[in-house]
């Protein structure tokens, strides 16, 4: 695997970057700041394109829509805002949840936003219609929802109550897996067959979706009490995670051996990261700084 180097470093001037997210095709990225603003960047050219202000508290997560025309963001002010990318104005503001929104996702067609909150609920928002109430609220979790992943027919929610729940719309079932540790982040492999769950005990666990069996465990990083995120690279060959030590770990998915260790900022927790959907390119956020990692050839 080609060694990744820092392609760009951007100072976001957002106090702390809570989350960094590539857009659908990986040309742009969003950073959610503790300064209540969302910034849209072109990380490859290190350009700030737009700033979205309107939240009343720290923005904890944001995602762009499939056509990159809208942004959905969740904040500690308990509201979910749908933004218009070009005008920078909030299109809709949903206030249905009782506490901070920790994670927010669009569905595949960006017709529905799904947000998870500290109030233990996952709410479905219809962004197409004018409806202000959640279409559906999932109340199965007994503690904070830490992350949500949405596929074309499934919703994976991870919660502090040590359960990963997979809601399958097609068959109308909720499959909950007890993990035994607080799940700080959950992602899915691109083939949709595995979960990758970051646990608070300093491990990342790879589960088989169908059977719920543990396939692999990845160790070496330090989670402390951070809600570390993880990612799977574009080829599903590696698992990537940040660490409280400021490093970025690459593990081989099969052998679970650490193949690469990048250092963002030493001893500063590297929490949020986002992998490019198609290229070997990674965005990491640490404090006020985001870094774009990649192979030189890709850039050229």
């Amino acid at each position: 695997m080609a060694e990744l180097i820092t392609l760009a470093t951007i100072k976001c001037k957002q106090q702390a970057v809570r989350a960094v997210r590539f857009n659908i095709d990986g040309t742009y990225c969003l950073t959610c700041g503790a300064d209540k603003k969302i910034k849209l960047w072109n990380p490859h050219r290190q350009l700030l394109l737009k700033t979205y202000g309107g939240h009343a508290n720290e923005v904890l997560d944001a995602t762009g829509s499939c056509d990159s025309s809208h942004i959905i963001s969740g904040s500690a002010d308990k509201s979910v805002i749908l933004w218009d990318v070009t005008t920078g104005q909030p299109v809709r503001r949903y206030r249905g949840q009782a506490s901070s929104i920790t994670c927010v996702k669009f569905n595949e067609e960006s017709t529905m936003a799904i947000s998870g909150s500290i109030d233990n609920t996952v709410a479905f928002w219809d962004v197409v219609s004018q409806r202000q109430e959640p279409v559906q609220v999932l109340k199965d979790a007994k503690d904070t929802i830490t992350s949500i992943q949405v596929t074309d027919h499934e919703i994976l929610t991870c919660s502090v109550d040590c359960h990963a729940r997979l809601y399958d719309i097609r068959i109308g079932k909720m499959i909950s897996d007890y993990i035994g540790e607080v799940i700080t982040y959950g992602s899915m492999t691109h083939d949709g067959q595995c979960y990758v769950l970051s646990c608070s005990d300093g491990t990342i666990k790879l589960f088989d979706k169908d059977s719920g069996e543990l396939l692999n465990t990845f160790k070496g990083h330090e989670s402390k009490d951070y809600l570390l995120e993880n990612a799977v690279n574009e080829k599903d060959s590696h698992i990537i995670s940040g660490s409280a030590t400021g490093e970025i770990f690459y593990w081989d998915l099969i052998s679970s051996s650490c193949t690469q260790k990048l250092v963002h900022t030493k001893n500063k927790p590297m929490v949020s990261l986002s992998h490019h959907p198609t290229e070997n390119c990674l965005l990491t956020a640490c404090e006020d700084e985001i870094k774009l990692w990649g192979v030189q050839s890709v850039e050229n």
Partner: peptide, 23 residues
């Protein structure tokens, strides 16, 4: 992990959710 830790329960998505998900 697996059978022991897994639990399935019926869940009914709202019709609108299904509609939006094209399912």
């Amino acid at each position: 992990y697996g059978v022991m830790t897994r639990r399935e329960s019926p869940w009914r998505p709202e019709s609108l959710v299904c509609k939006r998900f094209n399912i």
